[in-house]
Amino acid sequence: MNPLKNFIFQLQEISLLVWQAFIGLFRKPRYLSETIRQMDLIGVGSLPIVLLTGFFTGGVLILQTYPTLEYYGGQSEAGHAVATSLIRELGPVLTALIVSGRIGSAISAELGSMVVSQQIDAMRALGTDPTRKLVSPRIVALIFMLPLLTVAGDVFGIIGGSIVASNLFNQPANTFLSSVRIGITPQDLIGGSIKPLFFGLIIGCISCYKGLSTTGGTVGVGRSTTNAVVLSSIWVIVFDFFISKALQTVLDIGRL
């Protein structure tokens, strides 16, 4: 198959999978407990690294931009600068990248090994639809948990920024935080939590699709895991641009 045909084929398969997973949400049996288990695994499980990443990202942003702001006499805007870039861009994208590395790989490896050990076939033979039992709960959990993780990461980023500002640049935390409060707009917050919804969907459907379409034994599982992480990371970054553009148009963000 040539690459373009392959791409279109995969796109079609993924759309079909998402559609079936979506339809599955409205039919019985529903797998509520499985969804909650996935939320725990994805959300609570990823929280520590998301917080850590957010904290240090906020810190390094201040470390790098504070001298420049100071040069132009804009150091009072430091909190504003950090908060805006975190909430609009870095928070959602970095969280999505971390989750795609941690959860995307786990999902495709798990589903992939279920395929090669015939557990998916067994599931179907026993009368369960794997899309409903395995795919829907994972996608739903990702869509729910990613915005929450992002918000948590953003908050820790701002805390990290204010700690660096007060300790290394002697800016009182009060000054920093009030600049954050004045600087960010409701549109930033809305935009910043809409993005992760899409990212959750992207990571969920790519990893589930890659896992379920595994062929070729254990080697195949490794291949689909790698593909799942690479593809979902790329698509998160590509979509980020387009979602940002769309949000600017719709919510009128990005103009100071």
Binding site: S117, Q118, D121, A122, M123, A125, G127
Partner: peptide
């Protein structure tokens, strides 16, 4: 239809 069929897979295919 699968309700009335039982399948024993090659390697067992147990849910691990």
């Amino acid at each position: 239809v699968r309700q009335k069929m039982g399948m024993v897979f090659q390697e067992g295919a147990l849910f691990d």
